[in-house]
């Protein structure tokens, strides 16, 4: 557990020092939310109805940049070699990196959520469902994104191959997150709590499988 936390802290420190997420990924995400408002011709009712979908599309796009950035640092500086040669088990590295990604993404979602709240004029009917579904969705995305991040880490065309590999896999999470948010925001009459099982199962499968597969791929990363 200590090693997981150490890997996580290392990643968070790198992010805090470079401030790429704060100064680049976050503004990009807010900009996307604003562009969606233009695409819907600032129709308040439409924006309110589709806010869950637009919010999660933005999160997915931001995640892609976040993961790309996180693993580029590891490969370009040769840090991944040091990490591989350290005594830390690949499973712990996986969970550490996934945890760092989870924390970074959750902070991003909170800021983006506040921006959506004001810009799209949404109201929250079930805050508990909103928070639980956001936690599970972020856990699911972070697990899958960590696996795909290492998978495409030292590929020459990682900017194009990463979304092609990662985004289709995340579709079930995307659907679940939208439906849960639909219920939490009162946009569509659905049982959002039922979707938590899909999000939970997905997060669990990717966390377990990812932790095993991570070692297989890490061995080959140069």
């Amino acid at each position: 557990m200590k090693q997981i936390w150490q890997v996580c802290l290392k990643d968070l420190k790198v992010e805090l020092r470079s401030r790429i997420v704060i100064f680049q990924v976050l503004p990009f995400a807010v900009l996307t939310i604003i562009l969606f408002a233009f695409a819907f011709e600032a129709d308040r009712a439409a924006l309110r109805d589709y806010a869950p979908g637009l919010f999660w599309v933005t999160v997915l796009l931001a995640t892609f940049l976040f993961v790309l950035r996180s693993f580029s640092i590891e490969v370009e500086a040769g840090a991944i070699q040091s990490l591989r040669l350290s005594a830390v088990k690949p499973q712990y590295i996986f969970f550490g990196k996934a945890l760092a990604l989870f924390i970074g993404m959750f902070i991003l979602e909170v800021i983006l959520g506040v921006a959506t709240f004001f810009l799209y004029d949404v109201s929250v009917e079930s805050p508990s469902l909103l928070i639980v579904s956001a936690i599970l969705t972020t856990a699911a995305i972070a697990s899958a994104a960590t696996l795909y991040g290492i998978l495409s880490a030292n590929l020459k065309a990682r900017e194009t191959i990463l979304p092609l590999l990662m985004l289709p896999v995340l579709i079930p999470v995307f659907l679940g997150a939208i439906r849960a948010f639909d219920d939490a925001l009162g946009a569509v009459a659905v049982n959002g709590w039922a979707w938590l099982s899909v999000l939970g199962v997905f997060a669990f499968i990717y966390a377990v499988f990812g932790s095993f597969a991570f070692g297989e791929i890490l061995e080959e990363v140069e």
Binding site: V169, I171, P172, L175, G176, R179, A194, W195, V198, V201, F202, I205
Partner: peptide, 11 residues
């Protein structure tokens, strides 16, 4: 992912 996608799209 095959069964997960199927179930999620169905729901």
């Amino acid at each position: 992912d095959i069964p997960i996608i199927n179930r999620s799209v169905e729901w």
